[in-house]
Structure formats: C-alpha cells, structure tokens
Design a protein around this nucleic acid. Structure first.
Lengths: 341, 341
DNA sequence: ATGAAAGCGCTAACAC
DNA sequence: GTGTTAGCGCTTTCAT
C-alpha cells in the first residue's frame, strides 16, 4: 500500500509560482484577489486533489466548523432524533458534529466538555446528565463559557447557565393529558415522578399538580419517585398499586418508566387499560409496539435538534441578538393504554 | 464573562525559566530528563491548570489518540451497543472516539471518512452502509488506507478490503435456529432475506439453505427479499403468506424485518405463534416487549465493540502481527413467537 | 540533561 | 492584488 501525502497550499503555490498566502486567499474567498488567479488556484487545487487541513485551520483560527453534542444516552430514541436534527442543520451549513455520551455521569460530562474544547468546537449543544443536575456542578460548563464557546441547552436545562435553549411546552400538553384523564373518567391518578433536580421532571410534577387543582380538584393524586431506570419504576408502581385504593391511571415521567409500570401490571395481573390505564412520556418507538400500545407524549426530537442547531447559526449571523428560548409544542399520542372509551 | 486563555507549555517554561522543549519532554515522559525538573514541571502544570492542546499535538505528530467509528445508524440498538463497547475500551486506553452515521448512504460514508482523516484518527472502525455494499465503491476506504489509517471492520464487512475484522459466527447459530424449527415441527419455512450485496445478509441466506439441505431436506423453503425497512418487510411477508401453502414459520434477517411480518400477521389476523411462528435477528430491545415476544438472535453488540477496539490496541503493541479475524458466538434467544411446545 | 531551531499547514497583519 | 513574515502549540532532530 503506497502512502500518499496529501497536497497542501504549499504544493499548489509551488505549482503556480505563487505564495501560500495567495492560495489561501483565493481558496477562502477573499475579495482582494484577481479572478484569474482564483481560477488558476481552484483548478490546480482540484488537479492536486487538495483538501484543506482542518486541524491546521482550527489551530490557527482558534475555531472549528464543528458543533459538539452532549447527550445522556444515544440509545434513547428521543436523543437519537435530536442528534439527527442537529446533524441535518449542521451539514446544511457545512459544519460537522461530534457526539458525546455521558451515560448520566458527571465525570463523563466533564470529560466530554474537555474533549470538545480541545477540538475548538464553535458551540456545544447539550442536555445535561442526571448526576450533573443532582450535584449542581457546573464548573465544566463555566469553563466552556470562559473559553468563549457558545452553549445551547435542549430538553433538560439549567436555568443558572442562562444560555439559549430549546424546551418543550409542558403546560399545554399536560393540560391535554389532564383533560384526557377527566374525559376517560379516571378518579385516582398515580404519578411516577423523575429526579426533581432535573428541571423537566420537576416541571412535569408541579404542572401536573397545578392543573389538577385547577381543572379537576376532586381527582386524587398520589406521587412516587423513580431514578429513571425500569427497575426503580417497577418498585414505584408496586408502591402505588399496593395502596388500599389504588390508582386507576398511572402517569409515568418517561416511557421507560411506563414500561416499569407495565411490567408490574403484568406481574399483578392487572389488565391495561381496564384495571389500570397508563401513560408515558417521549413517544419511544416501543410505545406503539407493546400490547396494548401506550399513550405517550411525542416530544418532537427531530424538531428540537433542528431548532437547537438553528439557534447557533442565527446567532452566528447576529451575535448581538438577545437570549433565545424556543418552546416547542409536544403532542399527546392517545393510544389504547388510556382508552376505556 | 471573562475569557480565559489556556496555559501552554510556553507559560510553564517561562514560569520556570526553562525552554518549552524541556517542558514538553518532562510532560511526555521522556527519559532523558532529571527527576527534579520533571517534578517542577508537573507541579507548575497543575498549578497553571495546564491542559495539552491535542490539536497542536495532532498536527505536529500526524496522529491523534482518537478512534473513528462509522455505523449506518446509531438508533439501532445493536450499533449503539457496539459503540458503547468501543467507547469503553477506548477510554480505558485514554483514547477518545468520534461517531459518524451514514444512514445507509454512500456519500455520507465518504464524507465521514474525510471528516475522520481530517482529524488524523489513529484508526477507523466501521460497518459499511447498504449503499456502499450495493455499489461496491471502496475508493474512500482505499483513501483511508493510503493515508496510513488503520481500518477495522465489524459486522457488515467487505472481503476485498482484507482488513482486521470482528464478525458473528452465523453457521453455529443458524444451525441452532434450524434445529429449533425442526424441533417445533415446522414444515414450511418462509425466509425474508436482506440485500445480498451485504455480506451478512448473503451469508444468512446461503447458510440457511445449506443447513436446511443438510439437516432437514424435507422442509420447504421459500425466500423473498426486503430492503431493510419495515414497510418492505410487510410486502415481503404478504408475498410469502399469500402463497397457496403458506409457511408455518417466517425467519426475517433483522428484527425490524420481523416487525414487518408481525404487522402483516396482525393485518391478516394470523395468530403468532399458532398460525405463524416468527424469528428475527439482533435481539433488539423491543423483541422482548411485543406480545408475543419475538425469538431473535443476540449478536452481542457490546462484545463486538470491545473486540473491535481491542484489535486496534493489540495491533498497536505488535504492528507486525498477522490479520486478525475475531469470530463471536451469537446466542439464540428462544421466545414465545416460535414456541408452540 | 537541556537548549536552539525548525516545522506540522494554515491565516492574518502589514507591507508595497 | 500579491508577497513577506510571524505564529497557533506542540514535538523533534541536532546540538552541547
């Protein structure tokens, strides 16, 4: 196998008896260059199969055309969709992306920031890990800001960072959920809440409480918590279902949580939705597959990713624009698991 | 927000009245350095919160401690597991990873190679896209090789590249499948084959045919094809099931394919497994969730990722070692969809 | 054991 | 409009 050395602007310059600076200018669309040289240079570049060395460019300019993405878990369909949305907008703008997973761990998130700062990414789009939320540690994010790297948060956000962000409108969709529950005649609602340090889970809880009080003060609400794993949701469900008067519907803060309830219902031989109705959050792929299929909230991951990336490019055009907070409208997907008719 | 300039070896050198070269040597573990200076340097580095600039290092040395990963789709649980396996081994060895998705498209795969070569990744671990297999275009891979970048293939591989690779032992597990079918008394087997340009799908077909002939020549086999989408699997299933004598079991080449069959069975009001048994490939998360749950082949993504990354690090230690082909043993997960008892 | 100097490939400030 | 020069931060001969 022959090792090819890739062509540099020096090679192009040498071939044309010009200087590297001229070549650089011609290639980068600098205006003060004659049409003739520009043509010569681009042609020679093509002939030599020149490809710019992004590393050198980045080192020199201090910024790469790269967007860093940090998510808790790429296996989660919601995050995978967000990534797809970001990638789409990024590639339209000739930016590349680097994806990092935290697996909900703080130190992996810190490490991800280091990796991305090392790459001089132009900005970092992220949804923080559970541990980050729990510990409230934000030094790594401050560090990114102090290195002049833009931060944009999506889904799970931290208000103290005060960055641009893209979030879901929980108020509206939760109202839909509540009305749907009222509509179906449910009297006792079991709620499996996520870690309250994570803003979205805290909101899901408080908004639910507020709206129940407002629209259906007679409904009973019982709340337990889980740590986002399926196992802990099973435990939470068991707790709710072992009450003297058990709930007739359980709302779980995630679809994996709903799955835990589903497990427990099976275990306790409760039929869904007849004995127990069930609703989740995220509209994961499998909510449509299980029997009965599970009512869930479609959080529009693709749009969220697109929106987050778009904020970055808009801000690039107009750096002085104020903070933008994009609020998307999730959609309640009513399925069999909550439909008794 | 105050912008912090990160410390460089120059800062350390200046603070100690030494040269950058000395600092570099002290930090990189060069032997010809006095214990005293090494101590001084490391302490000052810590004090100044020095973090090496990987870009500069990479540009200078021509190689980064980075592993590039290219997969068709990170949403696919199998590939997500592989990525997790690679990340695990990589981070143990202080390497970072860059993940690229091709969405089964050739031009995205070519672009991914360019991105990774631009990053001077030490090696690229990949499973090629359907379109790459279909078109047989390998120039981008040759290009990587000609830039002296190691390539390691996993799962879907291309023999002409002759690289190290990690694959699944289809022979053994397919024999298990066939014996299981015989065991359950199935007489007519419907097979939904994947694109035959992709080696694993070609193998699944030929091995199945060979083994049926060998172990159960009396069984009837009918084969149709699909393009890896759920929709096309539905069409394939309809074709199989509309035959005068329809199959009593369908083996699909992927789990998504099995899902297509499942859709069609529902549509045609065939009960699984009583009217039609069903088996998939990959052991996706949802195969356990649907009712009845679906028999599938666990392809051990995590181990595959670990193995692929390990090959790279082994080869780094011993560059002259011969080509390694690691063959993993997948596991047949027998579930309700094929069990009539 | 340490310093001096060159260079990875590119861009940008300053000349003319 | 183009050339000259310096430098992003690091490593690596070649000196001594």
């Amino acid at each position: 196998m022959k090792i090819t050395k890739r062509a540099t602007i020096y090679d192009i310059a040498a071939a044309l008896n010009k200087t590297p600076a001229t070549v650089s200018r011609a290639l980068s669309g600098n205006t003060r260059i004659s049409a003739a040289t520009r043509k010569e240079v681009t042609e020679m570049a093509k002939k030599l199969n020149y490809q710019p060395n992004v590393l050198a460019h980045t080192l020199r300019t201090g910024s790469a055309k790269t967007i860093g993405i940090i998510v808790p878990d790429i296996t989660n369909n919601f995050f995978a969709k967000i990534i797809a949305g970001i990638e789409e907008v990024a590639s339209q703008n000739k930016y590349t992306t680097i994806i990092c997973q935290t697996h909900e761990e703080l130190n992996k998130e810190q490490h991800a920031i280091d990796t991305l700062l090392n790459q001089y990414v132009a900005c970092i789009l992220f949804s923080h890990s559970a541990e980050t939320a729990k510990t409230g540690r934000l030094e790594h994010m401050q560090k990114a800001l102090s290195h002049n790297t833009k931060l944009i948060q999506f889904d799970r956000t931290n208000a103290t960072l005060n960055t641009d962000c893209v979030i879901n409108d929980i108020e509206n969709v939760m109202e839909e959920v509540v009305r749907h529950f009222i509509d179906q005649g449910y009297k006792r609602i079991g709620f499996i809440a996520g870690p309250q340090e994570i803003d979205i889970f805290e909101k899901r809880k408080t908004v639910l409480e507020k709206q129940l009080q407002q629209f259906a003060p007679s409904l009973k609400l019982q709340t337990t918590f889980f740590d986002l794993t399926r196992e802990s949701s099973r435990a939470a469900a068991r707790k709710l279902l072992s009450a003297k008067k058990r709930p007739d519907v359980i709302l779980a803060s995630t679809d994996l949580g709903a799955l835990g309830v589903w497990d427990t219902a099976k275990e306790m031989q409760l039929r869904i939705p007849d004995d127990l109705a069930l609703c989740g959050f995220s509209n994961e792929f499998y909510t449509e597959l299980v029997t009965p299929n599970i009512t869930s909230v479609n959080q529009r991951g693709l749009e969220m990713g697109q929106a987050a990336a778009s904020i970055f490019f808009e801000r690039n055009k107009d750096p002085k624009a104020g903070r933008s907070v994009i609020v998307l409208k999730p959609e309640l997907m009513i399925r069999e698991s909550t439909t008794r008719k």
